[in-house]
Design a protein around this nucleic acid. Structure first.
Lengths: 286, 286
DNA sequence: CCGCTGTGATACCTCACCGGTATCACAGCA
DNA sequence: TGCTGTGATACCGGTGAGGTATCACAGCGG
């Protein structure tokens, strides 16, 4: 079997992301020539052209795009293997729960309270992350479970249990005329000329086109709202947005958001199973 | 980052499976001393003891068990990366559909007929496999989609669409008294002294205890039934079991079996999506 | 008690290959 | 026609993977 080595995968990902051998080599901490050689070797081994070098720049071929995607998940799996093994050997390892900072605050609080009461429960560690990071953290073994939100997050590849369903609110600058309303519709908020929707980076790191400001952290966004530059529509339970300059107005026709607890389906740990059981028990008391 | 190399993962898996450095080295085609060194190095790098060597034999530690599991999936992901990349570069690549030999025969026939009519549809290749192999084939990129059966197969980690639901039948030797019945119950078939249920290998390759014969392919099983040595309960649509010496009797209280089409959630290929759409279209006409 | 066998670990050597430096070939551009 | 920036090539040195020979030790049969 002519398996690729993880080193080769790392190299390819670096080049595919930078689209520049020099910068990629820099990022990897090696010189450019060995990197060029390594990539050619991979191409030769696979019998496939991955990069189109046309003097002055590099572009991904179709096959290269596929490998970029596959290599990322394969590398995640490899790091996860090391991480989980180390944690398995740690006698007092806490479970790591990843969640978006500020989201589902009350639910999380109740979950932690419940676990605190239960002397049996494994210790738990909260890993707060930015939007849409949870999937990666689960995949590379940085987290054991995550709170995620349908339809915002991509739940593909995980097992989930539904925890709660809630409506959404628009977060507006307090001074804006719309902030005085006691309810809004999607049509009303989706096209406010002086409050264009902010744009998040896509998977490849580039930003979609549009009039709104570019952001990649929640605090940036919170500040932009406070400054009266944008608005957003989020689940009602989110607590990252309670600045004095913010006003939350229910959006009556926005799709409901479901908070779920997610974990890797192959996780056979009883601790994870017990945690999920505790979390779902909260539903009854909700 | 101290990522493990795939070579190291392969080495560890070999030792963990053989529980014997010499045999593992043999299987890997290298000598024993480098293998010992490589494993020690991994243990040192992770700071974790993976194997308990106690003179005369090797045993897995808890952490070792975790790594064995994680390493297998990581290696699958790496092989999948190479395989899918190669296939992406192949202009006339067919989609590969994995299914248990003999199962859901009519459904498969109708699906192939439907695709044959559709000139647009990508060419498709059928990969027949033994019981429970489909998950591995999907994971390591050998197959794009699979027909799987709930609750028999482990669907964890895949996206699925339900295709059909059916009852189960007992397959019996024609000469056996129970073969004359026109229906049976689970209680009746589960404990027939002269027809003990056959035993399949578990994940680790060992067989569970019990009176029944050990099998690992369907044809072995088919023959054992014909010989009057065992019986089995399977979905009504299975066609691998129509030997003249076999009789199928409905088991009225057996749980229904759902045939699903499954694929890797991260698969972004339109061909796969189109195939799934075709398959689900069959439901309406069923 | 003494070999004998089978285990993994150790010692030591060799050479492949990874990575480094220097340089080339070439496209854009003043 | 140089200058700059790109990736490819040439060549060299050191690390480390893998080989052979051997050890240390536990069982076990005589």
């Amino acid at each position: 079997m002519d398996d690729l080595e993880t080193r080769e995968l790392r190299y390819f990902v670096a080049v595919a992301e930078e689209l520049h051998f020099g910068r990629a080599a820099d990022r990897l901490g090696i010189a450019q020539p060995p990197l060029s050689r390594a990539i050619r070797k991979v191409e030769h081994r696979l019998g496939v052209q991955l990069l189109a070098r046309d003097r002055r720049g590099v572009a991904l071929t179709d096959a290269g795009r596929v490998l970029l995607d596959e290599a990322r998940t394969a590398l995640d799996a490899v790091t996860a293997a090391a991480r989980r093994t180390r944690r398995a050997a740690d006698p007092r390892r806490p479970l790591v729960l990843a969640t978006k900072a500020g989201a589902s605050h009350e639910l999380l609080q109740r979950l932690l309270d419940l676990l605190a009461e239960d002397a049996q429960a494994a210790p738990i560690e909260i890993l707060l992350c930015e939007v849409a990071e949870q999937a990666g953290l689960l995949r590379d073994g940085s987290a054991d479970v995550a709170l995620m939100h349908h339809p915002y997050d991509d739940l593909a590849g995980f097992d989930t249990e539904e925890l709660s369903v809630e409506g959404q609110v628009a977060i507006l600058p307090a001074k804006h005329p719309l902030a005085a309303r006691d309810q809004l519709t999607l049509a009303e908020v989706s096209n406010v000329p002086d409050l264009p929707i902010a744009r998040w980076p896509q998977l490849d790191g580039t930003y979609p086109d549009g009039p709104g400001p570019e952001v990649h952290t929640q605090s940036q966004l919170a500040q932009l709202v406070a400054l009266g530059r944008t608005l957003l529509v989020i689940p009602a339970s989110s607590r990252a947005w309670q600045w004095p300059e913010h006003v939350a107005v229910p959006v009556v026709d926005a799709p409901d958001v479901t908070t779920v607890i997610a974990w890797r389906p192959s996780s056979r740990s009883q601790e994870v199973a017990a945690l999920v059981r505790s979390a779902t028990a909260l539903r009854a008391t909700a």
